[in-house]
Simulated scan of single mutants.
Amino acid sequence: MEFDFLKPIDSDVLDKIKKLSSQQLGSKIVFHTKDQFPDLNKINIAVIGVLDNRGSDSAFSDVDLLAIREELYGMFPGNWDASIADLGDILAGNSIEDTYFALRKVVSTLIKNKIIPIVIGGSQDLTYPLYRAYDELEQMVNLVSIDSKFDFGKENGGKPATSYLTKIIIDEPNNLFNYCNIGYQTYYNSQEEIDLVEKLFFDGYRLGEISNNIALAEPVFRDADIVSLDLNSVKSADSGNFITFAPNGFNGKEICALARYAGISDKVSLFGLFNHNNSIQESVLIAQIIWYFIEGYHYRSNEYPFGSRENYLKYIVPLEEETLVFYKSDKTDRWWIEIPFVSNGSNKLKRNTLLPCSYDEYLGACNQELPERWWKAQRKNIV
């Protein structure tokens, strides 16, 4: 069985949780212990640790998640009603491929059971088996990474954590419909990589763009299936990571806001956090990031998948060469733009679909500006 790969929660963690008050999060979570495995029919969100960072150049040979769990479960939850379970840890396999296999099997089963996994790694190459977990669902996948780098490195050179995206793009079956990077820093990425993002009609937002207007990220998460967070995208002053020193990056408030956007998205079905440096300071931040993701989950509006569009206000915007159709939700005031179906025998979209967008993109269209994300999605549909 897939869950045989999971090691139960350590007894010393459980002993500390028993001392918490009934109001704290640890008293409201179901744990995988040596005597009991949670009933998944009653679970909405599952926390999983992966104790393998062989894919990176980490100074630590071991991954220690003890401090994260202690900090997270000592917090007080919001007005939450979802059932949360901590399923324990996947140990490092004999090879990194063994770890990939175990993670893929566990996550695939959870997703098929409509349970959202929160995966705490390990190195970021673990994003690859998370992506492969969707193979059995036979659906196209949208991946969003919060990262200062694109991770397009060569597969045969360097570590997998810096080249996992290349593996995702090249390996069959190719189920990746869109990739978006949030927070890349130009000086960490070659011009070749930046050009490749454009060539593949992927999306990238520089750190400065998001820091100046963090709401730009909300429509991106609304269209994501997987969110992969590299903790090196947070500046060291806020993360406490002085081993892989990052003078620039997201601050604690911004990274928690992004996690909340990911949680509030009706479509996000998997959240991963990677490259933890084992420091106490970063453990506190990770716990808060997870808290905000769960908080966002509890404010989902259930507008995806779309049923009838009768509850949306429809706006038709004629441009010189296109006629754009926008929809605005009367429930949340959020916006979508229609991507028309183009029948060419090879396109990835099988029907007209709605792409999340912002009010500013609607205003731009009213001023005869074609939204860039619409254009890229349309190109992927045609090519």
Rank of each mutant, 00 (worst) to 15 (best):
294 I>K: 04
49 G>W: 02
329 S>M: 01
20 L>T: 03
180 C>V: 08
252 G>L: 07
238 D>W: 10
213 N>G: 13
248 N>L: 14
380 K>M: 07
144 V>P: 03
381 N>F: 04
100 Y>M: 07
156 N>P: 06
9 I>K: 02
113 N>H: 13
94 N>P: 09
126 L>G: 05
339 I>F: 02
321 E>G: 09
276 H>T: 11
338 E>R: 07
115 I>A: 03
138 E>P: 05
296 G>R: 02
360 D>Y: 15
254 E>I: 11
110 L>G: 01
92 A>Y: 03
201 F>R: 11
284 V>G: 13
151 D>N: 08
178 N>S: 15
270 L>E: 00
186 T>R: 09
185 Q>W: 06
218 E>H: 08
270 L>A: 03
62 D>G: 10
22 S>M: 08
374 W>F: 10
144 V>S: 03
46 A>F: 01
331 K>T: 14
179 Y>R: 00
176 L>C: 03
187 Y>G: 09
247 P>K: 13
150 F>M: 04
132 R>A: 04
140 M>H: 13
319 L>E: 10
283 S>R: 04
361 E>T: 05
200 L>T: 09
371 P>W: 00
78 G>E: 10
181 N>H: 02
266 D>F: 01
347 N>D: 13
128 Y>C: 03
236 S>N: 08
232 N>M: 10
364 G>H: 13
107 V>G: 03
381 N>H: 12
118 I>M: 07
85 A>R: 04
130 L>W: 05
178 N>V: 08
257 A>C: 10
155 E>F: 09
171 D>E: 14
126 L>D: 04
224 A>T: 04
265 S>H: 00
168 I>G: 01
114 K>T: 07
73 Y>E: 02
160 P>E: 04
269 S>R: 03
313 L>T: 15
209 E>S: 15
236 S>T: 11
76 F>S: 15
245 F>S: 08
332 T>N: 11
64 D>S: 12
352 N>K: 15
277 N>L: 10
102 A>C: 12
164 Y>D: 00
171 D>P: 01
380 K>D: 00
15 D>W: 02
21 S>M: 06
306 F>N: 13
101 F>M: 12
313 L>N: 14
260 R>V: 06
188 Y>Q: 11
203 D>K: 08
151 D>F: 04
45 I>H: 00
315 Y>D: 10
366 C>P: 01
228 S>F: 06
19 K>R: 15
10 D>F: 07
199 K>I: 15
36 Q>P: 03
138 E>A: 09
305 P>W: 06
288 Q>T: 08
17 I>K: 01
367 N>K: 14
301 S>W: 12
77 P>M: 01
60 F>L: 12
67 A>P: 08
269 S>Q: 01
294 I>N: 01
367 N>D: 15
341 F>I: 09
47 V>Q: 05
382 I>P: 11
200 L>F: 12
312 Y>W: 13
67 A>T: 14
27 S>Y: 06
172 E>I: 11
285 L>A: 07
382 I>Y: 09
158 G>C: 05
191 Q>S: 11
371 P>C: 11
168 I>M: 00
94 N>E: 15
